[in-house]
């Protein structure tokens, strides 16, 4: 079947199998390899992207369901794809050492952007609850929490297109 999806601001038209999962569309059809599959069971959140502005687990969404929609992955955050700066959430994850092996990171960052879009000034507790669907084995979440709280100091950290100043 044919789908039309805007991925990281670029409209695409692709022929896909009805059973294709959105995460495989992003990785294999669109060639965006940052979004990872961590668990297959909608548990770990490594595959989190923004679909029509809200965070979703792309391993549990069919490409077909996203037909006509807009997707943002970590590659499309901030301005680095066009030579610009990192998004405030990306920058804060680096500053606070909110990542180690990096495998959960694209999903964790997208979930954080989604969280901040809905709640720009979360408390510690709200950050923890807001990321309950994203697993990390390396950091114990300590620095992820700090990173999200740091990013929240940027007023537009909930907007995918936001960039830190150079």
């Amino acid at each position: 079947m044919q789908v039309q999806i805007t991925v990281n601001k670029k409209p695409r038209t692709d022929e896909v199998e009805p059973r294709q999962l959105l995460v495989h569309y992003l990785r294999d059809t669109a060639g965006l390899k940052a979004t990872n599959v961590g668990c297959d069971t909608t548990s770990c959140g490594a595959c989190t992207v923004l679909l029509d502005g809200v965070s979703v687990k792309s391993c549990t969404v069919l490409t077909a369901q996203a037909d006509g929609g807009t997707v943002v992955t970590v590659e499309g955050l901030g301005g680095t794809a066009d030579g610009g700066q990192m998004h405030p959430v990306q920058s804060a994850f680096r500053e606070e050492h909110g990542l180690q092996c990096g495998f959960c990171t694209p999903g964790m960052v997208m979930a954080s952007v989604g969280l901040l879009s809905e709640n720009p000034n979360p408390t510690e507790h709200e950050v923890r609850e807001g990321l309950e669907g994203n697993y990390c084995r390396c950091t114990g979440y300590h620095n992820i929490l700090r990173a999200v709280l740091l990013a929240a100091q940027s007023p537009d950290a909930g907007k995918p297109e936001a960039q830190v100043s150079a």
Binding site: R27, K33, A34, T35, N36, V37, V74, E75, L77, G78, T80, A81, M86, Q90, F93, R94, E95, H97, L99, C101, G102, F103, T105, P106, V109
Partner: peptide
């Protein structure tokens, strides 16, 4: 010292085995 590894991991994702081209 913040990590040299991070900009790539945060903006393009790592290149894990399944990502290899």
């Amino acid at each position: 010292v913040v990590r040299n590894e991070d900009p790539e991991l945060l903006t393009k994702g790592g290149t894990y085995t399944d990502d290899l081209i």
